[in-house]
Design a protein around this nucleic acid. Structure first.
Lengths: 394, 394
DNA sequence: GCCTCTAGTAAGGCTCCTTAACTTTATCGG
DNA sequence: CCGATAAAGTTAAGGAGCCTTACTAGAGGC
């Protein structure tokens, strides 16, 4: 999925202007990594000369992208003036449209959340849902106290896959009406913010990579177990989306169930846990959460249902491990706080299934993974945008 | 797996020297894509000015990387002098160490094969194998008439995975002795050529991408069915190797066989076809090739064995499709000329297994896929090396 | 023969980087 | 308190590489 058009790289020749720009970018990125640094320090680390660093940093400061942020007294010698990126040079919007909850956050360029809202999603029609998304986002932007024009980019997470050509979300079975064409365009124009749409599992994976347990992994898979089943794959910090953006749609993995071959998604999702528990003899109004709670109390049928769920997930992990060779697999999603119950059975079944055993970990971000992933993705683009427009004038 | 150390990018600052270098590289790459072009044409296409193109091209010519190659008379106006990369500026070596055959080729920078040898691999011990590889490679280089010092890089394809730290090939069960430490180092020093070692399925995938049916694919998987079972994954022209170089080791996919869960590799490899045929009632000295030949003659047991093999491969493809979302899956390997027999059953079973059905195609390169992949990979590095040493002086 | 169109060269200027020397400001040791 | 030392940062000079403009060279068309 291409980013906003504004960032699109036109294949410029390598003129001097581009050289300058590249060096400024180098300094800005280094500064983000370091938090704050003096000009002399930057010169040492980048290999650029001190005068060059001074002048480039002056340009960046004039454009409002960096600012003085304090001083540092070295062992001896003159005190250094420290520079840091200005977090207020732009803002990004993250939205997580889930079946149960709608979550919205505005972050500054440092990635600090300046405003956030979590509201129940009771919308059962497309109009209601888009209205809710627009209203909540507007409200969050207002609450943040940020000039709406400074929110330069947004990312929306949703089940399914966004089809650029048909301008609609596909395969989002659990959000009634959300598959209609033009809905995203409607939200975009209403908010006046450039929007990208990404799969929720993919964003959760990016969130877990940026802020969570996936940090530093060379290649990891995030398995989102909830109303649906999805997997996000992150390699070297970038999302792996496949040829049509369907990579990680492990709901389609072949799975030989007890009776007949069926879709894996039907066997692993939350509904399946309930169904299994009922088959094993549980009675009453059941939800996935109820089954996990019962298992925690050692209710025999619930324990068996959880065990079965673990076996199914192990199958998924084994397939992903053989094909992808990740160094880490993260379990997360609506099963959320129940992941601890699943880890042991998954590990056990995995031992029987395959000699490849990637590290297995529960999500650190829990329910926030998708939102934080959306925010991290939006931030990436927002930083580019803010840097690009630096010359163009406001 | 990192390339040769010489190519390693030290994070240089963006000085003017680097700018010059980048522009020369830009021109050289463009020239490779075009085959031959005039300076005016290059100026138009790259956006660089005519004087810049002229001077950069003069440097490249002085370094022996490009040369005049003819003239072109436009509709009207002065005839243009055409420049093209000099294929003789360096050479690359490709080696395919298979269980049955050892193949070696030397190519020039255009990718044209200047010498090649295919010899039976009867070695059954590590010393014999390394000797064979060294002797054959030397012979091919001699036959090519190329100064050995001009062979700047080589790539070796083998089953298994090369472990940089332990300096040995792992998981190469079908090559006796080949797993010993230091063997590759021995070959490297004997030949005096920098060598990389890659998995054969991975190289076959790259070969099929560069010269075969995978050309232009955004993401495709090459399934190598032979003595073993492997898969190579190529996305956007680059190999996808996973966190430890084990991506595509689909031999480890969980597979519920008729009796018990077993390793998929045992169920899909050539041996398995023979075994299945025997179970279905075939008698005598059987090889995989014999079974396929019999199936072509409509021998019932052989047909059923092929059918079963098709089902197993379909399972593999379905798993890869759900996890990776490729737009193309290529079947190739030792089953080689029998792929046509497998396509139909694979397609049929796939229909039952998953709604995701990537395009399925037989290998175009056949037995040459690994060698050509090795050559293509070596070429990539060789071009870099030749370009890098341009300034350093011979 | 002149015009036009394309390829290529020459000269001058601009941008931006580097080196080197210098200034400023701090600590340290007497 | 004062010079030595060290680090941060500035100023000045020089140079590398690119672009623009203006030119020459060669090949048809009218």
């Amino acid at each position: 999925m291409p980013a906003s058009e504004a960032v699109e790289q036109q294949e410029q020749p390598w003129s001097r202007r581009r050289l300058r720009s590249t060096n400024e970018r180098l300094l800005l990125d280094r500064l983000r990594g370091l938090g704050a640094a003096s000009r002399a320090q930057l010169a040492r680390e980048t290999g650029l000369s001190k005068p060059t660093v001074s002048s480039a940093l002056a340009s960046l400061a004039a454009a409002g992208l960096v600012h003085e942020v304090g001083t540092h007294a070295p062992e001896r010698g003159r005190t250094a003036v420290l520079y840091a990126p200005d977090p207020a040079a732009g803002y990004a919007l993250g939205v997580d449209i889930g079946r149960g909850w709608l979550r919205v956050a505005v972050v500054d360029l440092d990635g600090t959340v300046v405003a956030r809202a979590d509201v129940r999603n009771r919308a059962r029609a497309s109009a209601a849902l888009t209205d809710l998304v627009v209203a909540t986002s507007r409200q969050v932007i207002v609450n943040s106290g940020v000039d709406p024009a400074e929110v330069v980019h947004g990312v929306v997470g949703t089940p399914g896959v966004y089809d650029e050509k048909q301008r609609r979300v596909r395969y989002a079975m659990h959000l009634p009406g959300w598959g209609r064409a033009g809905l995203v365009d409607h939200v975009r124009t209403e908010l006046g913010v450039p929007l990208e749409v990404h799969n929720d599992a993919n964003l959760a994976a990016l969130g877990e990579y940026t802020y969570g347990v996936g940090a530093g992994s060379r290649l990891f898979a995030y398995i989102l177990i909830g109303t649906g089943l999805g997997m996000g794959i992150v390699g070297e910090g970038r999302l792996f989306t496949g040829a049509h953006g369907l990579a990680g749609e492990i709901g389609f993995l072949p799975w030989h169930g007890r009776q007949k071959p069926e879709r894996l998604e039907d066997a692993v999702s939350g509904v399946a846990v309930v169904e299994a528990a009922r088959q094993f003899g549980m009675r009453g109004q059941l939800t996935a959460k109820a089954v996990f709670d019962a298992a925690r109390q050692r209710h025999p049928a619930a324990v068996r249902a959880v065990e079965l769920e673990g076996e199914r997930i192990a199958h998924t992990v084994a397939a992903a491990a053989a094909v992808l060779d990740p160094d880490l697999v993260v379990l997360g999603g609506g099963v959320g706080h129940s992941v601890d119950l699943l880890l042991r059975p998954v590990r056990e079944h995995l031992r029987a299934l395959t000699p490849l055993r990637p590290r297995l970990a529960p999500s650190r971000l829990g329910e926030d993974a998708v939102l934080l992933g959306a925010v991290a993705t939006a931030l990436d683009t927002a930083r580019d945008l803010v840097f690009e427009r630096r010359t163009a004038g406001t």
